[in-house]
Design a protein around this nucleic acid. Sequence first.
DNA 1: CAGTATCCTTTATGATACTG
DNA 2: CAGTATCATAAAGGATACTG
Lengths: 133, 133
Amino acid sequence: MPSPQRKTPSVHDLPVDPRVEALVNEVIGRVADKWTMILIEVLIEHGELRFTRLGELAGGISQKMLTQTLRQMERDGLVIRTIHPVIPPRVEYRLTDLGLSLGEAFCGVWLWAEKNLQAIEDARVAFDIRAKA
Amino acid sequence: MPSPQRKTPSVHDLPVDPRVEALVNEVIGRVADKWTMILIEVLIEHGELRFTRLGELAGGISQKMLTQTLRQMERDGLVIRTIHPVIPPRVEYRLTDLGLSLGEAFCGVWLWAEKNLQAIEDARVAFDIRAKA
DNA sequence: CAGTATCCTTTATGATACTG
DNA sequence: CAGTATCATAAAGGATACTG
């Protein structure tokens, strides 16, 4: 890795419009939401799913949050919501290409988390011991 | 957060230890936190920084959240906090290898957001128009 | 089934004041 | 400077009841 002193070898290798950066932050804040990530994960693994099934597979999500998160995702162009006009209603959700690409981008974080779980737990234990002193 | 007995199958259909998965979710939940990501970004770009400077560069963070987020990051092994015993106090923060690797993993999401900013805005506009009908 | 609507609790965050 | 402590409030989220 390049030493931190060198000219910012970060994501931004070019002059960054602060307004663009602010928007990126906002998008990341919204999009990197816990339930959004989990729903994308579930949709990648299972493909198109109905509302209730999606909730079951996500695990521990309330109906309210499920609706709310799905609406946001739909608005952001991450999922497509298909209503089948039957009784009882059948509504299915699937990822758009945009949603899929976000899942792939986020995959790196997921892998990072799995890989470094133990390191984090160790760090916490060490910190808590230090903190007691 | 622990959901009361989830008979729900795991996010993966693969044999994944649910406790591991819960931890991964928790870690991602924390890591996908807005200020954590911004602080990592700033630390990658500027290297070791003092408390106040870090806050300035992060932009719009309250002292309370800065302290709180940095403590969490330190506990998770993402940053190292160095206290120089002088008056006035001088405390510097820098990323650990773990913190740096998280920044790199998250880089994909950052790039995704930059790249797809316009697509998201377009999707929102389109959705809002549809919603009015 | 797939939501809405409502109430209510918890959590997150901000503002302010104070200290070694 | 680099915090800590406290109060206040906004926002997130859950439980429950109801509906087309």
